[in-house]
Design a protein around this nucleic acid. Structure first.
Lengths: 225, 225
DNA sequence: CATTGTGAACGCCTTCACAGCC
DNA sequence: GGCTGTGAAGGCGTTCACAATG
């Protein structure tokens, strides 16, 4: 059922797969039939050895002397990332960030379907986002009833974040993407990832103050992910 | 001038410093005088050994048997992160995400001052965000003239992102935080960091599809950053 | 006696380099 | 000849464990 012996894929590789997926998608649209690891590496801003090692974790898909078949490799990666099925996403917290995420092309693209929106503020209930109404957070469990592998996005302030998180967990969410600046705790097997703007901003400030601490980017002039 | 012999601080540590900074800020507000590495670790969602090793990169600030002085350590970390000075931030791209970032408390807090907003769409020019007007991107160089260490935020679509990036570089920006799903190239010594929502979403999807690939979180039930 | 700071061991990802294959 | 796949080497952060210390 799974692909081969399901060798474990390192997390750094997992995070680069979406990058390759995006680049391959563009190549596919452009009708380019094959890519070498060097070309793919260049477009993705990494080095060729890393690309080959990453792809080797998925299987032996390349052809020596030629490279990789763009469409085939794209399909394999999309499958590996689960992008060949549809994912239900719920967003909790319809402040400015929630608005932005709900409107985002990128959430609706790639088979991530924004399925429901929630807030705790009565004033926001009922607002409509291209057909999806904002509902009160107390309806969360009902809305998620029967969904087996939904993904929750927390876009509320840090204060209520753990409470929202608990509600999502209680509603049997499979995974949570947390945009609030709060350290959250979830029980297994619920998955949790964090996106924190201010951490990135502070990291940039650190490296401006400490230029000597910058790890020189290699071949090209770009900083890695 | 610099702190001691400016030992190089590993990037994973740099990224955790903002986390410690936040937790210590809360402890400070609560009037708590000291923390042990175990307590700090717990609040930050990491383990105690990591906290001690991280902090040891800054200096010998702890007291055996007692722990760390909250206010003193907070000051040291804030200094290290450059948070004891003010940072000018410009945002390019005033779509939904740009709106959200411009309004965000977190950008205005922590001494990051949103100094100017830009867009290429004439319809958006002139809109006002709590006193900061949206200007046309062609004014970027003028607006940044004389600023030595400004930080640029790219919140536009992938298409124009490299062009925007080039304009920021030409305007002598010190660092760029890129929210667009594009691989950007900048010349040194310009710093670049990437925040990509859809990568995180796709990573979550991957781990839902491959539960066996999840690296079990240790002590507590939380997934790391 | 609780807790720090750190050398050493460990694990893991990255990079190298080249045999193998088209 | 060009390029992949991969074993081996290298580098680096994490974890361990304990001597040192107030």
């Amino acid at each position: 059922m799974a692909e081969r012996f399901a060798r474990r894929i390192p997390e750094p590789t997992v995070v680069r797969l979406p990058l390759y997926q995006r680049v391959l998608g563009e190549l596919s649209v452009d009708g380019i039939p094959t890519v070498s690891s060097a070309e793919l590496a260049d477009a993705a801003g990494v080095n060729a050895a890393k690309v080959r090692k990453d792809l080797s974790h998925l299987g032996t898909y390349g052809t020596p002397g030629t490279g990789y078949d763009v469409n085939f490799l794209l399909g394999q990666i999309r499958h590996e990332l689960g992008l060949d099925r549809e994912w239900q996403v719920v967003i909790v917290g319809m402040g400015n960030l929630g608005h932005a995420l709900a409107h985002s092309q990128r959430f609706s693209t790639q088979n991530f379907r924004t399925f429901a929106l929630f807030d705790i503020d009565p004033a926001k209930i009922g607002e409509d986002f291209s057909g999806t109404p904002v509902r009160h957070i107390s309806e969360l469990s009902d809305a998620l009833a029967g969904m087996s592998q939904a993904i929750g996005v927390i876009a509320c302030p840090a204060g209520p974040a753990q409470d929202v998180c608990n509600r999502l967990v209680a509603a049997r969410i499979a995974a949570i993407l947390n945009f609030s600046p709060a350290v959250l705790t979830v029980p297994p097997p619920v998955l949790l990832r964090q996106v924190d703007f201010s951490v990135e901003l502070q990291a940039l400030a650190f490296y401006i103050v400490h230029p000597e601490a910058v790890t020189g980017a290699e071949e090209d002039t770009q900083s890695g992910l």
